[in-house]
């Protein structure tokens, strides 16, 4: 078990929804990870599709760099439609 890689599990609950992270598990390979994910995370029809991803394949942003990483988005309020004044009388905008 010690050597078994960690997989992150994502489940699409229903058609029309995106896959959502539900947890993780250890398995010797991806095929076993998929089978185990079915048994661990979808015993009650919680999903119609499962992804398993080796945890080592995920590159994550770090919470420490939250400001530098995400703050430029806050400077650009003009990206939101509410930034603009719509003149009276203009329709369908």
């Amino acid at each position: 078990m010690s050597g078994e890689p960690l997989f992150e599990v994502f489940v699409r609950p229903r058609r029309g929804l995106s896959h959502t992270h539900v947890g993780s598990l250890h398995a010797p390979d991806a095929a076993m990870a998929l089978r185990n994910a079915r048994d661990v995370y979808t015993r009650r029809e919680e999903g119609v599709s499962i992804w398993v991803v080796p945890a080592t394949a995920i590159t994550a942003s770090s919470p420490d760099e939250k400001d530098a990483f995400f703050d430029p988005a806050a400077d650009k309020v003009y990206r939101h439609p509410t930034f603009y004044d719509v003149p009276d009388g203009a329709k369908h905008l």
């Binding site: 010690s2 947890g23 598990l25 048994d39 661990v40």
Partner: peptide, 29 residues
Amino acid sequence: LAKVQDEAGHGLYLYAAAETLGVSRAELV
């Protein structure tokens, strides 16, 4: 059988949650 299988599942959800704190499954076992 379904109930006992659920208990195993609960153990696994929780081991997965514990591992996010930086401890390995093998250590916990």
